[in-house]
Amino acid sequence: MTKGNHINDEERALERLKDILLKKDRAELEEIRSILHSQEKLTEKVKPILLDHFEFFKENFSHEYESIINELIDKKLKQSEQELLDLIYPSLGKMISKYVTLQMTTLKESIESTVKSKFSFGRSIKSFFTGVKESDLIIANANVSTVEEVYLIQRDSGILLASASNNESMDKDVVAGMLTAIKSFVEDAFNKDAQDLEMIEYGSYKIIIRSYYSFYIAMAISGALSSTEQNNLAENIDTFASNELKSFKGRYESSSAEISKLLEHQFIV
């Protein structure tokens, strides 16, 4: 027997031995391969495991990942702080402004009611000597209502006759026209007893309207305005209309500059 023949015999014997020993393992390996290469079989095997995992994930998500997610949100919020502020600020600002105005109005009305019902000797004395109303003394710091604009407008046409303003608003002729259009619409739509539109509210703005025979006066006010203040302003407007405007009867348009000065002196300054 040569040396080469001897090696071949050994190899064959080894292969036979491997066949005997690894037969079961090889069959299992073949089975695993067939599973891996068949999507249907693989799905059948993996699906229950994944479902179990999802169930676990659902039940333990907050516990397992809470800290990671919180960190991510914190980081994102810090990175986008300006964008978020830009988004939230306009709405928040309006909400706060409206809320503060409402609270101030409630506060003023409550104080006025207290002043009416409870007598205070000291406050009365101070009020007497300074000439300032008792309620005004109490809420001096909180009195935030301001007359922003006053318009004298021809009643039917909506043509602006005179105006005075605290600031530069849009074209006053157009404002007067649109106010008249709104007033006409409301009075036409809801008027059953020849009543006039007396108030328009927009956010923290109020427009008091006093209508007379040939003209009306519209006054835009910002800030908190109690019902007493509102009544006082309405009375002041009525007094102005009957006393100051009387001498301009029939020549309102040609006396526009003069009346505007009077309006400014009476209501704005």
Partner: peptide
């Protein structure tokens, strides 16, 4: 609405 025409 007639009020729209008034004063025109």
């Amino acid at each position: 609405p007639t009020s729209y025409f008034l004063g025109a």
